[in-house]
Amino acid sequence: MSVKTLTIDGKMVTGIAGETIFNVAWNSGVRIPRLCHVGGVSDVGACRLCLVEIEGQKKLMASCMTNVEEGMVVRTNTERLQSHRRLILELLFAERNHICAVCVMNGQCELQDMAEELGMDHVRMRYLFPKLEVDTSHERFGLDHNRCILCTRCVRVCDEVEGAHTWDLKGRGVNSLIIADLGEPWGQSDTCTSCGKCVQVCPTGALFSKGRTVGEMRKDRRFLKYIVTAREKHQWIR
């Protein structure tokens, strides 16, 4: 295993070859914003919040998809990056319906946290407010498309960890939607094992457990670490 030494926000840090900038940064206490990344499943580089500047490279790179290199000089929090991140969040908030006051995840939502952390306090664009369905056909869980940010965490955890591949995306562009099987109501899905992993990884109130009222939903992601450690290291420890 070769070790790479690099600088992140002026700090000398080390990582292992093949590790992403994102992971190395977080391990050394630099918290790069993210929404599509969730530890334990593959990365897709879709939300673009984790973009960083790398010296000598014209393009901004998604830190969750870029491996560390010896001597790299990375900046994760410049003025430019901050303003890009705020604008991306504004786009997200304007895309569907993210009214925190009436959401089960209020106070526990990663989208909300991101907005607070990055200082995005108002939206200067027109809200698109599409009228989307809320699927409550599953006996224990619900899916509110209006809160979905299309991060595909649920798709990945269902495919990679549970192995069911119930979820996928249909359509394209702004009309994309999360679907179960052939787009039938979740409760009728043949492939769903009702394991609830998707609910736990969803960053917003799009996937939720039934029976919780506004602000009550808590999500627990420790299971992912447990499974990944079990798979990779054959250690069954919490």
Binding site: I88, L91, E95, L128, I149, L169, G171, G173
Partner: peptide, 13 residues
Amino acid sequence: CGKCIPCRVGTVQ
């Protein structure tokens, strides 16, 4: 394609 936010929503705005 709708994968990344800037293009998916930015083009609409």
